[in-house]
Simulated assay, not measured.
Amino acid sequence: MRRTTPRQARKRRKSPRKRPRSGRTAKIRRRRTHAVGTLTVPQQHRVDLAAEIRASVVTDGWREVVGDRASEYVASSTFARLTRNYRRRRCRFLADIAKAILAGKAKYHDLVGGLADKVMALFGTERIERQFVRELVTKIPLPGDSRLVATARGVQITGILLCVLNGDDLSRCQCSIDLALEQAKTAVEKLLTTALEDWTQLARFGPKA
């Protein structure tokens, strides 16, 4: 019987190479976020200034009303589970999904179709986050891209709400950081106040080119 050399044995123990992803899921990879500690000095300054404005808008009344608005679009049990046992990475996951929607990399059928769980799982989301996004996008009564923009902004608003409920500094909230880097300070303030009203109005805050 032919004996196996140590070198041959090592080769056999090596795990097979993974095949590259193909199709739709290959295009919807988790995007790199501007996390705290990786910002340039001008970016950090912009985030800090925007955080000061948000602090004046995001009061106890804002938290209560925005929570009520979110509950109008998702089941009360879904929202309760989302806000229970909050972890900061939950905001990062929501931020990634929102950015993918705004960039056109996550379409309606990616969020509610048969592959929705698989697609959103690419962002590291947990089941409750996927459920929240799915319910939100299906309940917003707008057509096409307007529905997606309103959904993305609603997701970002919810991420900020989660950080506020947890007592986190808004300058370290990923959804808050993304808004500060994309939108002007006045636009961020208007978006936060618009969140107190009908969330269909969030469709007015499209992504900046």
Rank of each mutant, 00 (worst) to 15 (best):
A98R: 01
L148M: 15
R46E: 07
R84L: 09
T5N: 03
I28K: 01
L202F: 10
L181Y: 14
N166D: 15
S15K: 12
A95P: 00
K27W: 04
A70W: 00
W199F: 11
P207W: 07
I101E: 01
L122I: 06
V47R: 02
F79Q: 00
R127C: 05
A98E: 03
V112K: 02
E135M: 12
R21S: 03
L165Q: 14
L165I: 06
S77H: 13
V41R: 13
A100M: 11
M120V: 04
T151H: 01
K139T: 14
L142A: 08
G124H: 10
T193W: 04
R13C: 09
A116G: 05
P207Y: 13
E72F: 11
K14A: 10
A116F: 05
A180V: 05
F205Q: 06
T186M: 07
V36N: 08
T193I: 14
I177R: 14
E64Q: 13
V112E: 05
Y108S: 07
R3C: 04
A184P: 04
W62Q: 10
R81M: 13
M1S: 10
R69L: 00
G167T: 04
T4I: 15
V155D: 02
S76Y: 03
G159D: 01
A55R: 14
I97F: 04
G67R: 03
R17L: 08
A55G: 06
D110P: 01
H34E: 12
K18R: 15
R17E: 14
E135Y: 08
L179F: 08
A121T: 06
D48T: 15
Q131P: 00
S71T: 12
G159V: 02
T186D: 12
E189C: 03
S71Q: 15
L102V: 08
I28L: 08
R153G: 00
R7I: 08
D168A: 09
S15F: 04
R127K: 13
T138V: 14
A180Q: 02
V74Y: 01
R147N: 13
D96H: 11
L161E: 05
D48Y: 10
